[in-house]
Design a protein around this nucleic acid. Structure first.
Lengths: 171, 171, 171, 171
DNA sequence: GATGAATGAGCGTTCATTCAT
DNA sequence: TATGAATGAACGCTCATTCAT
């Protein structure tokens, strides 16, 4: 599964081959079928695992504004630290358009993120953060979109998320 | 080429087959090879054409702030009108990571967009737009990232770009 | 198709491989798929052709008794001349049990044979042949069964069909 | 072994899989290899067992004619009662053509049957049965062929064997 | 210019078999 | 004795590409 993830990161779904995955794992390609009946099953397992670790951390304590800031900082660091993880996640977004099984997994994970973002933004607004005028729902979408877009060019993610933080919190 | 674009929009690179393209165009699949020596050549042609029409329009007249606003509005409308075009563009972003030929084409187009965004933002700031504090370079990256991210979920693009406009222009 | 028939005759369905068929025909195995989309399609074509040429000849003229005798003689000669054809036909009988597509083809051909046998026997009886007491329907089944059984041991087919002729016509 | 027989009856040699056999027996497929080193060994065992129980019963007492009649009746009932057994036997006939090991087993069993049939027919003829003119050797072949052919269409076996009895004994 | 037969590398998958546990 | 992970050869099939027509 780790091998599959790395193959996916390198070549995308287009170049994902059972034989390559097996080769990278140092096993025979038919051995994979001993653990995953089909390629799709392997993919689902990888996706499940990958999106599981994509959950962004939010500091549990502090003012809502600080927690929002912390969340954005964590996102920024994650893109910097594991740029390929986010590339894979975008690959998944695209594939989910034609794969209902993936779509459900991904939508579920994203919905969790969306909800937590909305809550964060609403709380920040309620606590008198200067971002008061921003609709939490729209704010969440903007963060999600900016992160997704930034993950396609990790070297510019700092610019993107830095500015976004300033605009949303206006500190 | 039109057929190839539509196949790409439907199934991505992963499901792009010469035979399907030919079938959609109503010709024999061998005939494609008379116009494009290889599949890659066809892809390059499609990409060239697709990214060519992705250039966003900016109103030539009006105050810099109005022109920036017009540019963002044009982007928003484009995502709404041709959501699949933007999905294809994201597909290209991903593939460009492993395909230098595509990378060059796409980078070149994107650079043009980036430059025009920076100019727009700088002019707006210079003309006293309330977005004064925003670094034009970072602003351009944020717009690009937000548009790319929004194109993966066209139905939320309005939220994203609407809020972005407000935050950047603070009207 | 001829190559497929010969492979079938040699190894049965159990050992029927697209690559072997292609090798025997002197072409690449993928070329077969140019003409027959699937292995099953090739099989159906072969079966259709094979059962088509399995139709036994009946002399058009002469007394009913003579025509019946001629039919049996033709069967006997066919088994002697092309023993492998009849082996293939038995292979088909067996496979038809699990393959509805084949079953229909084979049942249709066999029904034609059955009808013609019944007619032959009924006419012979009506014309005073000494086989008078034999029910044409049962007689047809006995001929069919004997031929099928004899085709599994071609070297004894003469004994089987010779005796059957004597018993049915009692000359 | 019982599981293997049933798999064979359902799908023939073509669909005989060690895993299916094991699954039907409720054990791991590797476990089969503890009892039978290879698939062929399992097949041989099954064949040996199957052809062993195919031996037709002949009433030990009574006039030769009655015993012949009893033998044919037993055959008829066996096909009716266990039609799939006879289908498997035909499957074996076919496979024996390419498998010397099977061929020997089957030929040996069949030879026993043939001998007993010949004896039966000769005795019946010697005891003045009206089948006098029939060559016992040819008669045995006809019975064997008819039974084999009839086993491919069990629902017509009664017609076939009923008529055969009448013709051979002319009662 | 267009066709379609042909190719061959390569795909996901199957399956009998082996072997360490 | 029984398991299940692992193997590797082979399967049906796909697909970009070539080439004679």
């Amino acid at each position: 599964m780790n091998a599959a993830y790395r193959c996916l990161a390198e070549g995308g779904f287009e170049e994902l081959r059972m034989r390559d995955v097996a080769g990278r794992a140092g096993i025979d390609h038919s051995t994979i079928h001993h653990h995953f009946p089909t390629k799709q099953a392997l993919i689902v397992a990888v996706v499940d695992h990958t999106t599981g670790q994509s959950g962004s951390t939010t500091p549990p304590d502090g003012s809502p504004t600080d927690r929002l800031r912390g969340h954005l900082a964590a996102l920024r660091q994650k893109i910097n630290d594991q740029p390929e993880l986010h590339v894979v996640l975008r690959e998944l977004d695209l594939r989910a358009r034609r794969d209902p099984e993936l779509r459900e997994i991904i939508a579920s994970r994203e919905e969790g993120w969306r909800t937590s973002l909305r809550t964060l933004l609403a709380e920040a607004a309620a606590h008198g953060a200067p971002t008061a005028g921003v609709d939490p729902a729209a704010g969440a979408e903007l963060v999600i979109a900016a992160v997704k877009g930034a993950s396609l060019a990790a070297d510019r993610a700092d610019d993107v998320l830095g500015l976004l933080e300033r605009l949303l919190i206006q500190a």
